[in-house]
Design a protein around this nucleic acid. Sequence first.
DNA 1: TTCCGACAGTGGGGTCGCAAT
DNA 2: ATTGCGACCCCACTATCGGAA
Length: 512
Amino acid sequence: MLLSRLADVSGEVAAASARSRKTALLAELFREAEPDDVPIVIPYLAGRLPQGRLGVGWKVLSNRVPPAAESSLTVREVDARLTELGKLSGPGSQAERARLVGELMGAATEGEQRFLFGLITGEVRQGALDAVAVEGLAQATGAVAADVRRAVMLAGSLQTVAQALLADGSAALDRFRLTVGRPVLPMLAQTASSVAEAVGRLGACAVEEKLDGIRVQVHRDGDMVRIHTRTLDDITDRLPEVTSAALELAGERFILDGEVLSFGADGRPRSFQETAGRVGSRVDVAKAAQEVPVSPVFFDALSIDGRDLLDLPFDARHAELARLVPEPMRVRRTLVAGGEDIAEAEGFLAVTLARGHEGVVVKALDAPYSAGRRGAAWLKVKPVHTLDLVVLAAEWGHGRRTGRLSNLHLGARNPDGTFAMLGKTFKGLTDALLTWQTERLQELAVEDDGWVVTVRPELVVEIAYDGLQRSSRYPAGVTLRFARVVRYREDKAAQEADTVETLLAAHPEVRP
DNA sequence: TTCCGACAGTGGGGTCGCAAT
DNA sequence: ATTGCGACCCCACTATCGGAA
């Protein structure tokens, strides 16, 4: 298949607003694909590269190359070239990668270049990713969409399922069962604003500690242990303590879901930054493990002794978990009967926060494990802080925000009346607010370099955030975690905005 | 007819490892 | 030794479509 065909369809998908139309377009193309094209065409149209990482990003791609007049590239040729490119390493590899990218782009027409750019940077922006591709695949093969989706969750890969499905038809879907050693997409949580709201929505539930670390799925089959992240990357080699912990458990075959984090000598959890740095260390793992040891804390069991537990209700899965995993390695929790038990749940949240954790996750006792879904059966509750900050500048947006000022630079007051930038945010803005702030900020503009519009520091905005973290980038030595706009405070003057001093005082645990 | 679940889009900060400077 | 870049952890929120109620 020609790349130009793919690029054209991607463009049509982007232009279509109805999801059903997007699905139909993808299905048509999947039917056209020859068997050898399938493992390439399917991920490409789901906006992903089969190779995963290439070592090529926005920077290399932004070196413009004149496009070819005629399309000649096939998808298989593109795939072969990208595979070669991804293998490069060592001195001179970056220049060689850039050269190969230039060669590829030079062989591509303008439309193909656009498509390749989006594909490689992971920003196809066609309004269709995995979920729509699954629908299209089901439509192309006559399979039931829900069955395809389930197979993809269990295989952890759309591509694998697509190949089997196109080769052998719907019957192939039965082959994708939960298997120890093969990671499945983890179940995710939605956000609730309070424990009362969460318990109100769920009824009988468990309230569990929300630990601020790295999500892991641990598979053990005899002596073999594999550890996977949320995106199913294999990080076994980086976490020897977790492997040991899994081998100590009194079970030969299991899949457990949990969080890995580091505790200090005082027993309190280290900051997310410290845990994430440790888990990210790959070169001298022994040294990293000595300095920042990590522990797994499990909260769910997907499989034990060959029994698939996914469809069991959570209370039954937890009973299995409790039989296998002793308490320090199992998350702390409390059971709540329903709305009349709010005080118990709120007390548990308070204790959890006092112990230094992030918040709680409220989980319905009757819900199955919905692999790969961000369902309403798990609701996370974290305390939210707010500040009144001053807008120092704003950046022009991209995509559907093109032509609007989007990303705000936020400042807190210094003692001398100047402002210290604490970070940026683009979250929480409605279309109406985007329009309003674009106009208002341009009235205050003192400079526009085409990317950042610097403004007079007069506009006050209320910002919600989850906490402070240390920063080497910003002048106060700290930055806000997960900052988002709540509302503008036109009733407030910049001189009434919050100060760096009060911010630091509110988070004594974070010393810049 | 209205409501709501699921998705995609729009980017945030930090850290590590590698290659280039 | 330092810097720039890519990959990958953590993530909030809004708009939209289309099926459920």
